[in-house]
Design a protein around this nucleic acid. Structure first.
Lengths: 335, 335
DNA sequence: ATAGATTCCCAAAACGTTTTGAATAGTCAA
DNA sequence: TTGACTATTCAAAACGTTTTGGGAATCTAT
């Protein structure tokens, strides 16, 4: 027996009235409204979500696809961001759906099924690439979405991102001011927007201060990637005196490679990362890094999504959060 | 216009026939079946999920609640596990819903709304506690669920877990065999089952080899927690010569504390963790640890969930995965 | 030729809501 | 008293599927 029908029957009212009472319509008498509410509470009435979705023509859900290729996914703090986001979404009665996908084609396939089956009202795009087919697809479909990270067409959609470019520019500038002349960049794959922007910040600083030596090496954004990249850079004829790493994970790997060479970071060579992972404060020596200067990126992301669902224009929903330097020990002056 | 209606109309068939054709019923002629399939494919037909759920009386979704109190959530590898799980679930047409919750009461409230609103057919319980109200609630409701980690009533429900107890017993035994006589345990909060079991393994080994010195300290399962615990332990009158840490994160913090004291892990003191985080291979020195000897815990979890939804008895779905030691450098003999 | 099977198809009901349009009763002004 | 209005309530339609219970051909065996 339908719950609403059940409620109505036990109250001697019509389904309509019960429904409207619970939704707070003004055309039901205050007395009945209260009576209905009390009864609903008593039996823990909760509208059947499928029925409601069907009738309202809304899924009341937001989806996020998780690219899991090839190794592990992104920064370890990612789940926190999602949790904060989901928490805010829940306040609006929106569910957060997680759709892991193994490869790019599979990801697009997932999007298609998702939208064709009306399983979500909006989507979150993470790990954005400069040229991102997902963004193109979602724009074409006209479904609200917010990206976590920018793309080459960021002016055309809602996004939230840290200002990695400024962060890396500042860090590289600072290294230069400490006397470093060979400031290397350990980059993440350049199709990823964040990697591209961080590299660009580094590049801009070198240009600015007139350094033409621009050693760099691209690797996977993992400890192993950072380790390999650092090894390679330090084997060059004139090795760098500073390593600006795209992520803390890479920096942690790099630290390990330096240690193997008998180099002490912060004294023999400078190292700076990005993300301020919990582990970064406990490396040896403690890692100088930087972080997005906002405690609640996930929540803000949710807020933007909600605004977007409410019809706000995507051009009003483009947030670039400042990046704050977190100097610790590994970024000392050139010796 | 309804898509199914649309399809039916354009094919000159009834909605019924189209629906049954797509579901592969044998009472539609092979020829029409193919015709329908082709047409469906052409317009990317995908059944409206709300309508299907409503009629089938199944949400076609699995929920996982994420306890996000107080600091960050669990091991950094957790998202991978979820992704693997979601990937397998998707193959069965099941969505994975993420429900972050801030506290215990909120978590129970979330469960209630979830089940009352029929938003999920099954749930995954993570971060299990020895005495877990969530398990009691779900059992009472009779909804299928699988826990990630055991509880005190594990014999009554489906679960998947690593054999942390055996892992820690083996590790402690090994340390003893290397000559260690003061083997400390840096424990995680004991209401968490995994923490309880790991401590129990350590304790069992000490008993086994006749060591009555059992230094220990409980802390949050984070780098900061491990750091504080290690500091405290090393300040005792006769400090331990080995630290068996409940998690790698804690071990990483402990390594940092030891370094501050001028102690070199693997030479002056032994350290062993658990999880084999990617970062564990890149600490200084590389961290000896252990890991669940299965590449696909998430997938297995999904498999169990699917079996449970298929009506399999929960007592046939209780998996304890072996834990494999990953010896690196930090676990050397006593000097 | 005909009863009984078999094959293929369909109309209608149902799932549990929300929404539309209207009915009923009560109130107020003339 | 009547007509217009307001305040409350409700029956029925709709959302897009799946499932039930046939129905109309066609085939098989007598």
């Amino acid at each position: 027996m339908s719950s609403l029908k059940h409620l109505a029957q036990s109250l001697g009212l019509s389904i309509t009235t019960v429904s409207r009472a619970l939704d707070g319509y003004s055309d039901v008498a205050p007395a009945t409204r209260e009576r209905v509410r009390a009864a609903a509470q008593a039996i823990h009435y909760q509208p059947n979500s499928a029925a409601r979705s069907l009738r309202r023509r809304k899924a009341e859900a937001v989806a996020v696809t998780l690219p899991t290729e090839p190794g592990r996914f992104g920064p370890p703090t990612f789940l926190n961001m999602l949790a904060a986001c989901g928490h805010r979404l829940a306040e609006e009665g929106l569910d957060l759906m997680l759709l892991p996908t193994a490869g790019r084609v599979e990801e697009m396939e997932t999007y298609r099924r998702l939208l064709d089956g009306r399983r979500a009202d909006a989507v979150i795009v993470v790990r954005t690439r400069l040229d991102d087919e997902r963004v193109a697809f979602l724009k074409e479909r006209g479904i609200p979405f917010v990206t976590h990270g920018r793309t080459a067409r960021s002016d055309e959609h809602a996004f939230i991102d840290g200002d990695g470019e400024a962060g890396f520019r500042e860090a590289a500038r600072h290294l230069a001011s400490l006397g470093h002349r060979r400031i290397a960049h350990i980059a993440a794959p350049q199709d990823l927007t964040f990697a591209h922007l961080r590299r660009r910040g580094w590049l801009a600083a070198l240009e600015e201060v007139g350094l033409s030596d621009r050693p760099e090496c691209t690797a996977q954004p993992t400890e192993a990637g950072g380790y390999e990249a650092a090894r390679w850079l330090m084997q060059q004829r004139t090795p760098p005196t500073a390593l600006l790493c795209a992520t803390d994970s890479m920096a942690i790997g790099a630290l390990s490679a330096l240690k193997e060479k008998g180099l002490m970071a912060g004294r023999d060579i400078a190292v700076i990362g990005h993300d301020n992972l919990p582990a970064a404060a406990f490396t040896d020596p403690p890692l100088s890094t930087m972080e997005i200067a906002a405690p609640d990126v996930g929540r803000q992301l949710a807020e933007m999504l909600i605004a977007r669902l409410g019809g706000r224009d995507s051009r009003e929903l483009q947030t670039i959060l400042p990046v704050r330097q977190v100097p610790r020990i590994t970024h000392g002056p050139v010796n």
